[in-house]
């Protein structure tokens, strides 16, 4: 039997769909890690990105920082953090947050910066405070690009969260790591396909959110 037909076989087994090793449980775990990571990354990156985008300060630093962090290999960071803090959620989530912050930060400040400077000046001339300009003009007008940052961060995290399985975490990475170590390639391919489908679905959801916030819809939100 080819790996492909064995993979179809793997998907059709009832054991693949039930219990702690079943796809539903692993999928929920995986979504949990992804949500937690993107959530923490947003808490860090969104305020910082708004500040950079609105004031233009620290921009050079942010560009250099995000560029450097993007170059760090997540698997290496993960192993290192696990050696520092031990097993559990902290090490993998920290490593993944470092992966998610650069695209998110870039999305937020680019979104705010993308707003036409004349529009911002007009708002200021009308007597809006800086906070009002940010929340009522810059964020709504740049929302599509800001969501683009969230979209790209989510996509990277959902695909990379599989490395958590390397140090004992659950999630869909279990199929890939376990399958490889026990030469169970159908399980490995099956797990990868679930990750791919999940990534495409999440990306699609963000794409819809983005299209809803661009163009004429923007006015509704303002």
């Amino acid at each position: 039997m080819s790996v492909l037909s064995e993979t179809i076989d793997w998907f059709s087994r009832s054991s693949t769909w039930s219990g702690n090793d079943g796809i539903p449980h692993r999928l929920v775990e995986h979504l949990g890690y992804t949500a937690l990571t993107v959530g923490i990354a947003a808490v860090v990156a969104v305020p910082l990105g708004l500040y950079i985008g609105h004031t233009g300060r620290l921009r050079g630093l942010a560009v250099a920082f995000t560029g450097a962090v993007r170059a760090l290999p997540t698997l290496g960071l993960l192993t290192w953090f696990a050696l520092l803090v031990g097993l559990g959620l902290t090490a993998p989530i920290t490593a993944l947050v470092l992966l998610a912050v650069p695209p998110l930060l870039a999305g937020v400040y680019s979104g705010v910066e993308s707003v036409d400077q004349r529009t911002v000046d007009a708002a200021r001339a009308q007597g809006m405070t800086e906070i009002q300009i940010l929340t009522r003009v810059e964020v709504p007008l740049g929302l599509s690009i800001i969501l683009g940052g969230l979209r790209s961060a989510t996509l990277q995290v959902v695909a990379t969260a599989t490395v958590g399985a390397f140090i004992g975490l659950g999630g869909l990475g279990r199929y890939i790591i376990d399958g490889q170590r026990s030469s169970d390639y159908p399980q490995m391919l099956g797990g990868s396909l679930v990750v791919v489908v999940l990534a495409l679905l999440l990306d699609g959801a963000w794409a819809i959110a983005q299209s809803l916030t661009s163009g004429r819809h923007t006015r509704v939100l303002v």
Binding site: L83, L87, I167, G168, R174
Partner: peptide, 20 residues
């Protein structure tokens, strides 16, 4: 069961020494 992919290396050792 906790699966750690380092062949009984430093992460496995740490989990044992810390009582995890």
């Amino acid at each position: 069961f906790t699966a750690i992919s380092d062949g009984g290396g430093p992460n496995t050792l740490k989990a044992l020494l810390e009582g995890k």
